[in-house]
Amino acid sequence: MKRAVHFAAAWLLAVAGAVHPGSAGAAGSAVPVVRVGVTCGVHAEILDEVKRVAAARGLDVDVVVFDDASRIDTALARGRIDAASFEDAQQLAATRTAKGYALAEVAPTVTLPMAFYSRKMRSLNELRPGMAVAIPADPRGMSRALVLLQNETLLTLRERAGLHAALRDVTGNRLGLKLVALPRDRLFAALDTAAFVAIGSEDAAHMGLQPSRDSIGIEDARSPYANVLTVRDADRAQPWVAQLAAAYHSDDVARFILVRYQDSVRRPW
């Protein structure tokens, strides 16, 4: 979790103004164009603001919106785009393992937080022993929910489980909560029966829920599930990478995120 916030120093020391590897070669002969792949919605909206900031600093960014997120890492690995901003570090690691892509995370971007929602309580302090808690049944969603429950001191997990925790890894449950694993499409209905429900950001948005407004517990901005800016391994030392990351971490972009999304989109930088 900590390493996600230690990238910035290296980026900001890089020298700006180098020509992109795919653009015209002579110094000053062309403005480099960095093609960044994103999904529609939050990531595209934020990258439009990053593009504006980067342009003022001499870096031309082309925001390439994909309808299918599963195509973005492949496009990056094959050189069709130069960077990507759409997935968290855990998803990137899984893609590298599954497909062997030589991709590197170079900057944290935003955290789209999992949160706890309830129709029965206004605070986790109202929990009583034996209450039912609904969590996602899919392995990734379950792990994320269990880690959040541990962060709220409601559960203790087997240390070696790490970010791949499952129900079998629960070693402590101080209130004897009943953990009910449900498919994602049944989580919203569980709000009628469970004390609270753990729901991911995308699903919550589809249900009309906003973490900053409606939740009673929320992931930290510096979550290990923070999204990341990704480039090819071969490009990670290129000056344009530092420029792009610095534009993303600018005060203007921070202000845009706060005003547009409040705390429903969180900054890990």
Rank of each mutant, 00 (worst) to 15 (best):
F7E: 14
F7H: 15
L12S: 09
G17C: 05
A18S: 13
G25S: 13
G25E: 12
A27S: 13
G28D: 11
G28I: 08
S29C: 03
V31L: 15
V33T: 14
R35N: 02
G37F: 00
D48R: 15
R52V: 13
G58F: 07
D60R: 10
D60P: 12
V61P: 06
T74N: 05
L76N: 00
R78A: 13
A84Q: 00
A84G: 03
E87H: 00
A89T: 01
L92V: 01
R96H: 01
T97A: 11
T97R: 12
G100Y: 07
A104S: 11
E105V: 02
A107N: 14
T111K: 04
R122Y: 11
R122T: 13
S123F: 11
P129W: 13
P136S: 04
A137C: 06
M142S: 14
R144K: 12
E152T: 08
L154N: 15
R160D: 11
L163Q: 14
H164M: 13
H164W: 12
T171I: 15
N173S: 09
R174S: 13
L182K: 10
P183W: 06
R184D: 14
A194Q: 14
A194D: 08
G200M: 00
D203M: 14
A205L: 09
M207T: 11
M207E: 12
Q210W: 12
R213V: 14
D214P: 10
I216V: 08
E219D: 01
A221Y: 07
R222D: 11
Y225E: 00
A226Q: 02
T230K: 00
T230Q: 02
A234D: 11
W240K: 01
Q243N: 04
L244R: 02
S250E: 01
D251V: 11
D252E: 14
A254I: 04
A254W: 12
I257R: 06
L258I: 11
Q262I: 07
P268C: 05
